[in-house]
Design a binder for these strands. Structure first.
Lengths: 412, 412
DNA sequence: TGCATTTCATTATTTCAATGAACTAATGAT
DNA sequence: ATCATTAGTTCATTGAAATAATGAAATGCA
C-alpha cells in the first residue's frame, strides 16, 4: 500500500515528487477542466512545477488536454481532464446469489459488466468460476485495448486491515479463506494492483470516490441485503475506509437494538439483523432461500401482515441509521442492497423515523443527505474498482504506463 | 491546523523538511532512547539527514541527549529523549461540576493541577473564572520557567470540525457558545496554540497519545458521567480524532438501545442515556443534583433496589460497548467518567456482557483491551494538552523556541 | 597491548525537485 | 494597433536529502 502510514512518515525528494504528481492528478480528477494555472493556485505550487508534472501525466496517459477556457483579458488556459479512454479498472463482487464484475474507466464509467448466477459453493470453485468470467471481461471489445491497472474484489464478510484473508462469510459458509490468493492462481495473467475488501466498504468507497461534483468529507454506505453491513469512508483529499482492529467496523447488523431480543445466528440476542435483514424477512414471511425475495413478495405486498412486517423492519433500519448518525455522523448516507427494492412499505418507515429523529439533539434543521440506490447490483464491484484507482493514483509514474508514440498520437 | 489536509495536498522542500523533522521528533517521542542510527533505519532517511534534523531539535529544546547505548561491537549510539524539562502544555476542562486544569510536560507528566468547583453558570462568568485560575497555574513554580506551547480546552458538548463554537452543552445549559474566543479575551497574555474540543474526544486523544510503550492504532474513550459520550482516535503515526460532519460522532448517549423506550431530554425515545447515565441514575435513585452521586450512594450500595438499578445500567453500558465494537472496532477501549467510581455492582455487568458477546461473531478468543480509569478527574484536561502537543509537533521549527545560550547550557 | 572490525556520527560533495525570474503566447480592452 | 493581463515555458538558482568519505568510539581477538 502506498499509503501505509509508517512508510510515509518521512520522505525524500522522490517522495515529494510523487506527492505532487498525485496531488495534481487527484485535483484534475475531482475538478475536471482545471487549467495548469488553476492547479498552481490551488496546490500552492509554482506554474513551473505544475507544468512539468502535467507534462508527465499527459505522457503516461493519465490526463488529456481539452478545450481552451474562456479568458477574461489574458491568455486562455488549456482545460485538463482525466484521460478516460486509456486505462481500465476491474472490479468484482462475490455475493450470495452470484458473481458480479465490471470494467470501469478512470471516471468510473462502466465499460462492461457481467452478472453470473452461482449459488454458494466452495472458495475454490468460486475462484475458478470468477477467473473464467474475468478472462472474458478482459478480452471484451471496450476493455482489451486498454491498459488494466488492476483488480479489486468485494466479499460479503470482514477482512482485517492489511490482510487478504476473508475472516468469515456467514452467508457463503466460508471462514478464513485467502480468496485473493486463490483467485490469483487462476488468473496469473492479470497484472497490476490486486485488492480485496468487504462489500459494504468497497461500495462506500466507490460511491464517494466516483462522485461527480463536490466530494463529501465522509460517506456511509449501508448495505441491506441478506445481512446488514456498512462502510465508512473518511478523509479529504485522500479518502480512507475505516476498518477497525479486526475488520469488524461496520458490522452493524450485529449491534444490539433490542437487548434480550431474539437470538441471532451470531449467538447474541437482539442484533439488528434479527429485526431487519434478508434472512429475518424470509423467515418471518416464509420465503425460501432459492426464491427471489422481491419477486416472492410482489403479489403479497398489500397483505396486512406483510405491510406490518415490512414496517417493523423499516423502523428498525431507521433506528440503525440514527445510531450511526450519533456514532459516526457521516456527511452523507447511501442506502443500498437488495432490500431497497422492497419499496415504500419498507423504506418510508425507515426514512420517516430517521428524518424525525436526526435533529432533535442539536435542535437544528440541517438534513444529512441520504440517497437510496434502487439497483445496487454492481455498486460493490464498481467500488472495488475505485479502490484500485485510489491505490494507483498515489504513484502515477510507477503504475502508469508510458504512452507508446502511436498511442500518444491518438490521444493528442 | 497544520494537518488540514487540503494544504498538505502538495508540498515544497520546506514542507519536506518539516515532515521529516516532525517524523524524527515523533519517533523519539514514541520510542525514547532511540539513537540517530535507529531513526535513520526506521525512517528510511540517511544518517546525514537525521543528524542535522536531530541537531536542530536539540537546539530548540525538543530533544535531549542521554546515555551511550550498549554496543555489540562498534561505536555505541547516543540515546535521544524528549526534553521533558523545557516546554509546558496547558489543558483545561469545563465540566458540569467545575473547572479542571493541568500543566503537562511533553511526556504528559502532570506538573501542576487544579480543580475548581463551580456550578453551571454563564459562559462569560465561566471564562473569566477559568482565566483567573489558569493565570495562577501559569505562574506556578514548575510551570513559569517553561516555554508554554499553548492551551487546549475540553468542553461537554459537540463541536463541529474546524470550528471553535460549542454547539450545545445540555448539562451546562449552553448553546452556540464561542467559548475559546471568550476565554482569550480574559487571557490575552497566553500565546501559542489555542484549541477546543469535546471532552470525550480530548480524553481519547490524551489516552492514546501519552501512552507509554506501543501506541495502538485506534482507541475509543467512553466517558460515562452525567451524560454518555465517546471519542475515537485513529491513525498511525499521526492519530486523528473522528468528529463527523456536525461534531456528533461519539454522541453515543443518544443512540437508541430500546426502541419505544423512555423519553430522553433530547426528545427521542430509548436513548442509551435513559438506561445508563448520571442523570438517569440520579432520577432512578432519588439523588439530588447538588449531592455527589458516589457519596450519596455509598451507604445504600447493598440495598437490593440499588444493586438492581446499577446492574441494569451496567448491562446497558455493556450493550453500548458491544455496539461500538461492531461499529468502530477500536484497538482498545478506555472507560472513564464519574460513573466508574460506582464500582463492581455497576461495572461487572457491563464487562461481563461485553466479554461474553464480543467474540461470538468471529468465533475467536482475542479480547479487546479494556481499561477502566478509576479517577478520571484530569483525563480530559490532560487530553486537551496532548492535542496541543500533537499540533505543535507538526512544525517543530515554527512552534519551538530557539534555546538561549544560558538555557542550552542548563540542558546539556 | 595492538589492531582489525564494527557501528555511530559528522563532513564535504553530488543529486534532484521546486522555486523564481525572465520569457513567449494568446486573449480582451482601449 | 497598442497595451494590460493572464497562461504556460525555459533556465539558472536554491535548498534538502542522498552519497561517499572520514573520523570517533566501542568490541574482540591475537
Amino acid at each position: 500500500m502506498p499509503n501505509s502510514a509508517k512508510q510515509h512518515n518521512a520522505g525524500d525528494l522522490r517522495f515529494l515528487k510523487r506527492l505532487n504528481r498525485s496531488a495534481i492528478l487527484e485535483m484534475v480528477r475531482r475538478t475536471p477542466g482545471m487549467t495548469r494555472a488553476d492547479i498552481a493556485t490551488e496546490a500552492r505550487l509554482t506554474k513551473a512545477t505544475v507544468g512539468t508534472g502535467v507534462q508527465s501525466l499527459l505522457e503516461r496517459g493519465w490526463l488529456e488536454e481539452g478545450e481552451l477556457k474562456k479568458s477574461s483579458g489574458g491568455r486562455p488556459g488549456r482545460a485538463l481532464y482525466l484521460n478516460d479512454g486509456y486505462y481500465a479498472l476491474i472490479g468484482a463482487e462475490v455475493g450470495v446469489h452470484g458473481l458480479r464484475m465490471v470494467a470501469c474507466s478512470l471516471n468510473g464509467h462502466i465499460l462492461d459488466q457481467h452478472h453470473e448466477h452461482l449459488p454458494p459453493t466452495t472458495p475454490e470453485v468460486t475462484a475458478q468460476h470468477l477467473a473464467e468470467c474475468l478472462q472474458r471481461l478482459l478480452a471484451g471489445p471496450d476493455v482489451a485495448e486498454r491498459h488494466c491497472l488492476g483488480l479489486g474484489v468485494a466479499v460479503p464478510g470482514p477482512i482485517a486491515p492489511g490482510q487478504t484473508v476473508l475472516r468469515l462469510a456467514p452467508n457463503l459458509g466460508w471462514r478464513d479463506v485467502p480468496f485473493l490468493d486463490l483467485l490469483r492462481q487462476h488468473l496469473p495473467t492479470l497484472e497490476g494492483i490486486w485488492l480485496m475488501d468487504n462489500e459494504a466498504k468497497a461500495a462506500a468507497f466507490g460511491e464517494l470516490y466516483f462522485r461527480t461534483g463536490e466530494i463529501p468529507d465522509s460517506l456511509l454506505y449501508v448495505s441491506a441485503g441478506t445481512g446488514i453491513g456498512s462502510g465508512l469512508v473518511e478523509g479529504n483529499p485522500w479518502p480512507v475506509v475505516t476498518r477497525g482492529l479486526q475488520g469488524l467496523a461496520g458490522e452493524i447488523g450485529h449491534t444490539i437494538l433490542q437487548p434480550g431480543g431474539l437470538y441471532c445466528h451470531c449467538g447474541n440476542r437482539g442484533c439488528a439483523e434479527t429485526l431487519v435483514s434478508g434472512w429475518t424477512l424470509r423467515a418471518a414471511l416464509g420465503i425460501a432461500e432459492e426464491d427471489d425475495l422481491y419477486e416472492a413478495l410482489q403479489p403479497r405486498l398489500q397483505d396486512d401482515d406483510v405491510q406490518h412486517t415490512l414496517k417493523r423492519a423499516g423502523q428498525a433500519l431507521g433506528t440503525l441509521l440514527l445510531n450511526l448518525h450519533h456514532t459516526q455522523n457521516p456527511s452523507e448516507i447511501v442506502l443500498g442492497g437488495s432490500l431497497t427494492r422492497l419499496g415504500p412499505a419498507f423504506l418510508e418507515p425507515a426514512l420517516d423515523y430517521f428524518d424525525a429523529s436526526q435533529n432533535r439533539l442539536l435542535g437544528i434543521s440541517q438534513r444529512i443527505p441520504l440517497r437510496i440506490i434502487d439497483d445496487s447490483t454492481f455498486v460493490a464491484a464498481r467500488g472495488a474498482a475505485a479502490q484500485v484507482l485510489a491505490h494507483a493514483i498515489h504513484d502515477p509514474d510507477a503504475f502508469g504506463t508510458k504512452l507508446s508514440p502511436s498511442a500518444a498520437e491518438v490521444s493528442s
